[in-house]
């Protein structure tokens, strides 16, 4: 009960409807508890940044949002995560459908070792979103345009995606995630392997994508969190310490652990 009040989500100043919400989410790796009851809401068309020192559970939490933790044998999730009011851990829910609705971009760019074109159409093909060649062509063009990659690769769509630069590869991964028209996009430190220019590119992109998607992003870079997000959640040692408007968190944190982290005293 204590943690419930402590982690009580701060009502944001925006009036967007809630897209996803986590209620008392606890994650265990074997006997070890990695998250001690997290309560947070993701609002539609909003970027939620998750910050905190290494090992604080922010990536773990992100991966519970599309059940990527299912692939880890010893991992167990308790509590409720709702997507449009529906519990995603409901055994009747199809995880394939869930991952079509909640897409993910990983820390390290991981395009498939296939052509750029095939990378983008993999998801739509998998979920049967298109059947004809012209439909696939259209998906490839719009997805790559949304990821800001179209102009750079339109003449070499059939070259391997692994031949692109790191930043281009990451944008290809974003295009791949966008191609299935998900409702939520999860990003796990998408810029940590990229140089500053590629990072700036992706940050701009995140801001544009917010128009159509709900985005949750884990980042180590506090400036990045401040730049791209509307709300920020601070994790520490498996606790969600504080969540609120990004401006509020960075200028006037309520918890002294948040204060310590953002002023660089630890982390």
């Amino acid at each position: 009960m204590d943690s419930m009040t402590l982690n009580k989500p701060v009502q944001a100043a925006v009036t967007q409807p809630v897209k996803m919400s986590a209620r008392d989410v606890k994650v265990f790796y074997g006997a070890k508890r990695a998250l001690h009851g997290v309560n947070v809401d993701l609002y539609q068309n909003e970027v939620l940044a998750m910050i905190g020192p290494s090992g604080c559970g922010k990536s773990t939490f992100l991966r519970t949002l599309n059940r990527m933790n299912d692939t880890i044998d010893i991992c167990r999730v308790e509590g409720k995560i709702l997507l449009d009011g529906q519990d995603i851990y409901d055994p009747r829910l199809d995880v394939v459908q869930l991952r079509a609705r909640v897409g993910m971009v990983f820390q390290k760019p991981n395009p498939f070792p296939k052509s750029i074109y095939e990378n983008v159409i993999y998801g739509p093909k998998l979920h049967g979103l298109a059947t004809r060649k012209d439909e696939f062509d259209a998906i490839v063009e719009t997805s790559l345009k949304r990821a800001g990659l179209w102009n750079e690769v339109k003449d070499r769509l059939h070259e391997p995606g692994t031949g692109l630069s790191g930043g281009q590869q990451q944008r290809l991964c974003i295009a791949r995630a966008v191609a299935v028209s998900p409702e939520v996009i999860l990003m796990d430190e998408p810029c940590s392997a990229l140089d500053p220019i590629a990072t700036a590119h992706i940050e701009e992109l995140i801001d544009e994508l917010r128009e159509s998607f709900t985005i949750a992003i884990v980042t180590h870079n506090m400036q990045q969190a401040a730049r791209v997000s509307q709300r920020t959640a601070f994790f520490h040692l498996g606790d969600l310490v504080e969540v609120g408007d990004t401006e509020e968190i960075f200028t006037n944190p309520r918890d002294e652990r948040t204060q310590g982290y953002i002023t660089g005293r630890y982390g």
Binding site: T71, V96, R99, A100, F106, N110, F112, H127, C173
Partner: peptide, 14 residues
Amino acid sequence: PPSIREAALGMGAS
């Protein structure tokens, strides 16, 4: 590399 598996699973592949 496990990242390839993750990429496929993250796209909703079984």
